[in-house]
Nucleic acid binder design. Sequence first.
DNA 1: AGTTATGTATAAGAATCTTATGTATATTTG
DNA 2: CAAATATACATAAGATTCTTATACATAACT
Lengths: 118, 118
Amino acid sequence: MPRNDKKMKNSQLYKGSLNTIIMKLLEENGKMYGYEITQKVKAITQGELNITEGALYPALHKLEAEGLLDVEIEKVDNRMRKYYKLTEKGTTETVNRLSELEDFIRNMQSLVNPKLEF
Amino acid sequence: MPRNDKKMKNSQLYKGSLNTIIMKLLEENGKMYGYEITQKVKAITQGELNITEGALYPALHKLEAEGLLDVEIEKVDNRMRKYYKLTEKGTTETVNRLSELEDFIRNMQSLVNPKLEF
DNA sequence: AGTTATGTATAAGAATCTTATGTATATTTG
DNA sequence: CAAATATACATAAGATTCTTATACATAACT
């Protein structure tokens, strides 16, 4: 009963990156459901990043409301799953977001590792 | 009179990274004042990241309140400058923050560029 | 004389996230 | 078999960080 889950301690740095992560995973995997996304992220980052439901589900709903995702409900093993996939608009937008992410990472590296400027 | 400044359009991705940026710049430059930080960041990122005063000054005040920064006021050219520098605690914490940033960047790259996993 | 640059500051509101719940079924474990 | 864990979605309250809009003040440029 005690929802005693592991305290996450995700660095503040991840703030703002959730939408990009979701969209990239969907671009790569075609369709995914929420819980699957949390597990995938945990696996890829070797447990370093745990998406919380309180962040994930509102984010999915918002992306859907913005027309970037489509949803499709399935019942598997008597349990509900909501599969999300990118719309056409979402696919286009994903390209932009990934480009922004590259710029962001490049800029952060310039700020933090000025010796590497060339 | 109209503070008609350029609209910044900073990507959401930068959210959460300002403290790390400030601390790294101070570690590198010894002491800096707020306006100087905004100009330095703009220069290093070639105009791509513009720190707004509304974000910067509260962040500096908070870091000071947390004991990570010390402040020293100077009057230059009849204008006030508040120079900030890392405290001992701040220097230690900067190491942690930079380490977190490296982890963050590595994790984001794993998520976004899965082919590079090895 | 008016705009831009330099310099700091705060308040209102937006956006995103954490934490804490709530509901429900399936599976594993003591 | 009862309890805990895993699977699965959802929302609300509050924290944090940021944008936007001001405010004040001096210096320099046009």
